[in-house]
Design a protein around this nucleic acid. Structure first.
Lengths: 342, 342
DNA sequence: GTCAACCGTGAGCAAATGCTCACCAATGCA
DNA sequence: TGCATTGGTGAGCATTTGCTCACGGTTGAC
């Protein structure tokens, strides 16, 4: 919005703007002082300074550490209404990339968590890498609760209970495990399990969390939900055929963020999208390459508030949005790139 | 003061500062919003942004038109307590240089003058070039009054009366002439002249001015006061021997800005330094090359509030101050250059 | 172990800033 | 010529910002 082309300035105006801007930004005079000096009214000085900024006479440059992609982050925030976005610069090694993302997520949690917080935790390889880097400066009285059941089919450190335990150990907090599988073979069994106090209680605590740490899953045959045995390859293929592009906590959505009603849903022991919606801060960590469509779909659900992601996926997601034909006004690849010019 | 070396930052701090700065300066969030996003207190965000600025993470660059020497101007303002300084970029031709200075002075007056102003005007070649460029956008009801008498020995356009007339013509204002010579041969004659209502009245109006436009004279044999016949070369030599480095309205001062008591003073028909002191805005225009010592002395009198000067003199004056042994702390050439680092 | 000195912190306030709005002058149009 | 429109202007107010100050927790010396 309010995109302003670098307007053409008359030479005299240019000089005045530069003079005012120098006085304001370099010499740090107040607008009132400057107004007095130049025999202008204060609001006029304000307007001129505004113009100086918009016309590019004043250039504010943020000297970011290499590897920080602040521009991308801002675009993600704006495009998806996130309250925060953290992008890690591209690395060749997927393993290193995952660690970089996990480290940033850990730093974010260190900043964000404070005594009394309750954090709901999903499964996932990237989420599983977070605890290794989670070392708050001081002890934190935080409770980590599994937001979904476990799966024997995948590495232990990728399971929610394990992630909770490790995170709690990292800060001296508490871990609340969910002693149930992520996925069972019938609705009846799930309902029986949900009737268990131990299980319902844990899930309920997760639902009451103020923060959630979640991964974003894809719909390819090698995705976590398949590797963990929650879904078969034919089931994931069926979901794909229904338009599913990704999931959060086993809740599949299409590219528009609409839920995919599926029979598998009812055999899942995890928080629902509505649960997540009620949790103030939902932090999603993603690093697996080539997940942009999954990310796009899940972001559009509108429950994610913070995204920690690698640079490749970040760019890819924004590209998807920019090239989409049907949505929003004036698509085309150039639009997004010129959003900010300062 | 408060010179801050670019402090060394830890990598994490660096990242946080860059992130905050980007959010604040590029995305234009308020400090409060940022504080909330980063789970910090508002004052803390403020301090961090402060640090970001001082440590150079935020670089504010003013894209000045070529030939604008804003840095020099700020140094002049600070060094001599001027309310404004305008420096014109160096040109090879002294004539072109004078015109450039005069043009800037004219622009300044156009901005500064408003209906009802009374401007006291001295003689001088540079001051004489001002009217040619003085073309306010709209009619101005301003009165220009000679602040010293005339001299038949110099070009007409260099005489105060003539400058007043031309300035008044330029804006549709009034000119009040001083019908007296700048310099007479005895104190008695001067006193007689001062007793004349026409003369005393004009000088009095000049003394009541709210703005003054003055030149700064040197003490070489070719200075305006000698060329105009006000002083002989032996008189100016005597003044030099007394330490005089320059004058304003015929009032000679030494390099410290102290007045030089001289017998010639009493034969002068012009405003005194004390008169000038009571005039709110005294604009000095100087462009003759190699006048830095004259400028230095006159600026130190403390009556000049605005200096319009060529780049060569501006640098030379600041160099003189920087290399002075006796005054202020920690002299040496490097000091001034490092005053501002942003 | 105790005490003093010292950051770093956030509350609270004063100043500075951004913004809205009503007004005026200049311009264009009938 | 009169009238409507537009662009720019400064008054006044709400918000944002910078700053002071008292407090608490930590460090380091004795």
């Amino acid at each position: 919005m309010r995109e302003e082309l670098r307007e053409e300035l008359r030479e005299d105006d240019y000089e005045l703007l530069a003079r005012l801007a120098h006085r304001y930004y370099v010499d740090e005079r107040t607008q009132e002082e400057i107004a007095h000096e130049f025999a202008l009214s204060r609001p006029k000085v304000q307007r001129l300074l505004d113009r100086a900024r918009r016309s590019g006479v004043v250039a504010i440059h943020i000297q970011a550490p290499p590897g920080l992609r602040l521009e991308l982050e801002s675009q993600l925030r704006e495009t998806f209404g996130l309250s925060d976005a953290i992008v890690c610069s591209a690395r060749t090694d997927p393993q290193a990339e995952r660690e970089a993302v996990a480290q940033r997520a850990a730093r974010y949690l260190e900043r964000r968590l404070h005594d009394g917080c309750v954090v709901a935790v999903s499964h996932g390889r990237t989420a599983g890498a977070v605890p290794r880097f989670f070392r708050p400066a001081s002890r934190l009285d935080v409770t980590f609760v599994s937001a979904m059941g476990g799966s024997p089919g995948i590495d232990a450190p990728t399971n929610p209970n394990e992630i909770c335990r490790a995170l709690a150990a990292g800060c001296g907090g508490q871990a609340v495990s969910l002693y149930a599988p992520a996925y069972v073979e019938s609705v009846e069994i799930r309902d029986q399990l949900l009737a268990q106090e131990a299980i319902a209680g844990s899930l309920d605590r997760a639902a009451q969390a103020t923060v959630a740490l979640v991964g974003i899953g894809g719909t390819d045959d090698g995705c976590t939900m398949v590797r963990s045995g929650c879904l078969t390859t034919s089931e994931i293929a069926w979901l794909r055929s229904q338009g599913a592009v990704g999931d959060v906590l086993g809740n599949y959505v299409d590219t528009e963020g609409r839920p995919i009603a599926s029979p598998h849903q009812d055999r899942l022991l995890a928080l629902t999208v509505d649960h997540l919606r009620r949790i103030g801060t939902v932090v999603a960590v993603v690093s697996e390459p080539e997940k942009p469509r999954a990310i796009l779909g899940v972001l559009r659900v509108g429950v994610i508030s913070v995204l920690v992601v690698d640079e490749g996926n970040a760019r890819a997601v924004l590209d998807l949005v920019a090239h989409e034909p049907a949505r929003g006004g004036a698509a085309g690849s150039g639009r997004r790139a010129s959003q900010r010019e300062v």
